[in-house]
Nucleic acid binder design. Structure first.
Lengths: 272, 272
DNA sequence: GTCTATACCGAGATAGAC
DNA sequence: GTCTATCTCGGTATAGAC
């Protein structure tokens, strides 16, 4: 289980997202009700909205990168990958909200502002979307240890930051994604191996961080320590609490299972 | 999150279960293939198998309870409730294996050796099955603290028993049920309140047990202690590890996230 | 690459015979 | 209470126009 990070978007990106959302909402509505009454009007509107959304997205891209530093073909390549990225981002939201089985490919495509046909041009099946999403989400955690064990810095454990991270994670719509990856791996033998590998590597990052932190607390330099069994056990408890405190906190709202409670016990675990 | 208990069945009960399984498998097969070829033969066979299964179940009941100690009407009442209980037990297995959305009411009914029609005579909807199941499974944990915090006895923490419990839980087909209750509550506002309540009460049982254990370790009598915040934090960590160690252990097979590792860190948590 | 249209199937739920 | 048959809907995936 890894944990999601809060989104960070510039204003243009946010506008693009908002327009895409509106487009998606309209697409969904049209598919269900308006279509039978005045099809041509609704479809023309949806098409123009989609076009506007694409244009905004391109503009966002162009602003984001310093002009001239990328060649034309690369930019075209990125334009192509953008759809894929948008679809995966939409998949993250929809699957987190409804679960893998509960989410339909139509839902995902519409959330991204596309149709099913477009999605199937990028992914061969629904399960392929799921695996691509898992590789992306669990993969970034491997590259950025701060996402794996929040609040653990070179100066020790930052309890404030840990609490803030837990609180944000509790409200994050994508919270349930990590759970979905876990259950998907448990229920689909084909995916189990790869997901297990991602989980193990993610855990090793966390264990290494715990080991460094504890070594430093004992006065050692903290560089290049190999985690002891006790470090690993501690890491297991920390990531367990990280996940359970946020999930149960959201469900129950109880102070006993809350970000604050989670931060307290994690602090104790890492101090002991 | 609560944890499932290993099944315990006498041999007659096991035979009943096996027959029901065979019946269910046949029912499924018939529905898909044989039905079109020789319908009357297959259906007659399925019907007789079902009847045999019911007979065996009744016999099992009669043997299980000392004869004469229950009145006739009570026994009839139990016969009626038996179907409901069988359906719920089948629902537990199927939903654990495929998830709530992935499990169909046909799957559940067939697993119990019945058809959809029978299920709908006992439950008004699929979601009602889910909630009845949650009440049953999370409810028994409230009445039997040993299921809530395994290995915690009056004499302290029994690490052997804890490890054994975790190992059994890791292999338990019903392991994923508690996760399913959690995500169902998170995704269905109508169910959130009741499930949250069950989770909170379950947690309070665990916290009380932690408090008693730690009080006794300090030399106090251990009777009627009210859990401190530190006790509650400890309980949060313990139940977190209990769940995560089994789930991740099953997925990864890693010794770092295993029943043994979970037992070690829980022991440390309860000693500190 | 994206859309529309559709094939095909299985889902949840209901009706009515027994 | 249980079964069979059926209704209606929505699912994944594909075909073919543009």
């Amino acid at each position: 289980m890894s944990r999601p990070e809060p989104d960070s978007q510039d204003s243009l990106g946010a506008a693009t997202r908002a327009l895409a959302d509106a487009t998606a909402a309209l697409t969904r509505m049209l598919g269900k009700q308006v279509h039978d009454v005045v099809p041509e009007v609704g479809e023309a509107l949806a098409a123009s909205l989609r076009e506007a959304s694409r244009g905004l997205a391109d503009a966002s891209d162009n602003v984001a990168k310093r002009a001239g530093s990328v060649r034309a073909d690369e930019r075209r390549r990125e334009r192509v990958d953008r759809t894929r990225a948008d679809l995966l981002d939409a998949a993250a939201r929809v699957i987190a909200a409804k679960g893998y089985e509960g989410a339909s490919v139509g839902d995902i495509a519409a959330e991204a502002g596309y149709t099913k046909g477009a999605l199937y041009a990028h992914f061969p099946s629904k399960s392929a979307v799921m695996m691509a999403l898992a590789r992306e989400r669990l993969g970034i955690a491997l590259e950025d240890p701060a996402l794996d064990l929040p609040g653990v810095t070179d100066d020790g454990l930052d309890v404030e930051e840990l609490t803030a991270w837990l609180t944000a994670a509790q409200d994050d719509p994508k919270l349930l994604l990590s759970l979905e990856f876990l259950t998907y791996g448990l229920r689909n033998p084909d995916a189990a191996g790869e997901l297990a590998d991602l989980h193990v590597r993610s855990f090793e990052v966390a264990a290494a961080q715990v080991a460094r932190l504890r070594a430093r607390q004992r006065g050692a330099t903290g560089a290049d320590v190999v985690p002891t069994q006790d470090d690993r056990d501690t890491a297991l408890a920390v990531v367990s609490v990280l996940n359970v405190a946020t999930l149960e906190g959201r469900l129950t709202g109880s102070p006993d299972m809350s970000p604050a409670a989670g931060a307290r016990i994690i602090e104790r675990l890492l101090a002991g």
